[in-house]
């Protein structure tokens, strides 16, 4: 496989031909913030946190789905990108009811971490305070729509890793919701295998183990990678 050389934040980086900008940057220890990206599942480029500037291109490109090219000059952390990222976070916090203080994921939440990293000390946009429910019907897991950022990580692991197709997005726009089967209580799902990958995939406290209380919901991200590698490459990296 041919190697490509490019510049990321002034640093010369060599990458494999099929790598994305995100992969190349991470290999070079250059952090790019992400939210909807999850190692091991297909990227969708939806959260826009990983947008980067490419010299000579007017448009910002999502690093998670943009392939490396020879000679690219990439900027991942300009003042403008930082501003956009903070705004995106403010929009996410205002969209649903993210109350960190009483969240199972407090302290282990990717959204909370991103806000901290981007200096988001308050939200200037109006909180929408939608009236959303919590599905606690499942015997093992709970789904709190109030904390969902619609990143679809759970949907993708359910479809592409587990292959069950239980979870999906329903509705559209700001009314989008994660549903199980025909929008029935999770416990009534005919297709759910209770594998728990969705819970492992969730970046926030939207999906959680029942019984977890505030700040107790920790995830083992390596588990997903382990399964993906096992299924795709037949390698069990214990």
């Amino acid at each position: 496989m041919a190697a490509k050389t490019l510049t990321i934040d002034g640093q010369l980086v060599s990458a494999e031909e099929n790598q994305t900008l995100l992969e190349a940057a991470r290999d070079a220890q250059i952090p790019i913030p992400t939210l909807c990206h999850l190692d091991g599942v297909m990227d969708v480029g939806a959260c826009r946190m990983c947008l980067v500037e490419i010299v000579g291109t007017p448009k910002l490109l999502p690093a998670c789905v943009t392939k490396v090219q020879e000679g690219l000059e990439v900027r991942t952390n300009s003042e403008r990108l930082q501003r956009y990222r903070r705004l995106l976070l403010e929009l996410l916090f205002a969209e649903r009811n993210h109350v960190c203080a009483v969240c199972v994921s407090n302290g282990h939440c990717e959204l909370q971490d991103l806000a901290t990293q981007h200096g988001m000390d308050h939200v200037r946009y109006a909180y929408q305070a939608p009236n959303l429910g919590v599905d606690l019907s499942h015997r093992l897991y709970g789904l709190d729509h109030n904390r969902c950022v619609l990143c679809t990580r759970c949907v993708r692991v359910c479809w592409y890793i587990e292959g069950a197709g239980t979870l999906n997005l329903a509705g559209r726009g700001t009314g989008s919701m994660i549903i199980t089967d025909l929008n029935q209580p999770w416990a009534d799902s005919d297709t759910c295998t209770a594998c728990g990958k969705c819970v492992q995939a969730c970046p926030t406290g939207a999906l959680f183990y029942k019984g977890a209380t505030v700040a107790e919901m920790e995830r083992d991200r390596q588990k997903l990678e382990y399964i993906v590698t096992a299924r795709e490459k037949k390698q069990w990296n214990v």
Partner: peptide
Amino acid sequence: LAQHQIRFG
């Protein structure tokens, strides 16, 4: 404030 000092929750 340092980064970790502006955490919600």
